[in-house]
Design a protein around this nucleic acid. Sequence first.
RNA 1: GGAGGCGUCGCAUAGUCUGGUCUAGUGCGCCCGCCUGCUAAGCGGGUUGAGGUCUCAAAGCCUCUCGAGGGUUCAAAUCCCUCCGCCUCCGCCA
Length: 439
Amino acid sequence: MLDPRTVRTEPDAVRASQTARGADPTVVDRYLDLDRSRREAIAAFEELRARQKQLGRRIGPAQGALKRADAADRDQLQREVDALLSEAAGLADEVKAAEARSAALQSELDEVALDLDNLVDPAAPVGGEEDFTVITEVGEARDFAAEGFEPRDHLELGSRLRAIDVERGAKVSGSRFFYLTGDGALLELALLNLAMSLATRNGLTPVIPPALVNPAAMAATGFLGQAAENVYHLQDDDMYLVGTAEVPLAGYHADEILPAEDLPLHYVGFSPCFRREAGSHGKDTRGIIRVHQFDKVEMFTYCDPADAVAEHDRLLSWEREFLDQLEIPYRVIDVATGDLGASAARKFDIEAWIPTQGRYREVTSTSNCTTFQSRRLNTRFRAADGTVAPVATLNGTLVAMPRVIVALLENHQDANGDVRVPAALQPFLGGREWLRAPQ
RNA sequence: GGAGGCGUCGCAUAGUCUGGUCUAGUGCGCCCGCCUGCUAAGCGGGUUGAGGUCUCAAAGCCUCUCGAGGGUUCAAAUCCCUCCGCCUCCGCCA
């Protein structure tokens, strides 16, 4: 949700931002029209309501006087009370009508406001999905030809190691489900522990949140908008399965005013993630690149909006630190305006090199949502001078398990199909240097 | 799943039975000022959030806000309904 004052005072900037995203800029004008009508309706209602209150305050005393009155005064007072009551009754109807009109315009405005995406950061590259800019490339893709063997893909490696089982996943749950077994299961736990130790060393607070949330939490994070078709909904209980820990971490401080001295707040949540993957039939059908359920470690920051850009860089640096430790080649891209998602002003993706695909694939993503998300969540902070204002929120992936496992297996395989364990991960795998197929 | 109790402006509490004098009182905490070698005490004032209006801005004025949403009424913290949360007891259960 944008600040209404921004739309009012800088409509051109909002239009330009919408255009950069490939979204509709004329929403701004519909918004401004409705906003004007709404404010007129509020003024009309409040004026009537004030009159009603003034009138109402005279009724009690008048009735009291009537009760105590002598017979002589009674008729006169009775007439006065009756007059007051009938005037108040008429006014009550007007108030009710004016209030209804004002409420109707408010909800219309709220509806239109949903079509206004966050203002893009001027630093973000303008364009569509393909117009990202590459910020940096780290590490080098192995030359398997020079090493004299053809790399196996993650599913082949995972099956050989008895680490990944998609057949039984499909048997029990359907396509896009999988089991991690043996070293596969241990590998996820090792990645989790490495991530958590890195996060706590950097001062983040670990959180294990609920993965099932109510409609308010889901809506406030914006996932019931265009992403709604990818969200699992439990009809009987009207609950949603989260697609990321961002949802419960964002909802954590909803409707709160945080003391400025507590900021920035850094959380790191570990949760299962559920995604329906509607509309991606036929895409990434092999292996565990795209699945309906996986586990993820997600960072979430609440901060003073003035610090948001610096905090965004911190999240990115923590993501990079993690991949550096896994010795996986990757590149960092600055996502283009057309591919940001409604909440983000700017987004950096880290893409790991996947040898058997011969290209980079997204493994983590970090977004600066500025105050867009917090306005809907109603999460604010009290500055030193006592003023209250929306906080900025940012999120970033530390580990999305399946994709990191894919990158790890493929990049660290040897000619036999065994997989080298990077040094940083060894302490979390009982000191083992290799994952080898069981006999 | 069943029965009962509770939810008030940071915290604690009054008000709800019996609707209007609640423009929500009081204590504590916090902030400002006075007083004072300093500190404490004492004295005075302030202290929810949102929206609207006015304004360069502020002050001011108005409306809403007593867990949430509806209803009754000229008028709701107060009466009625639904929902949410917490507590106690019973049942079931990892």
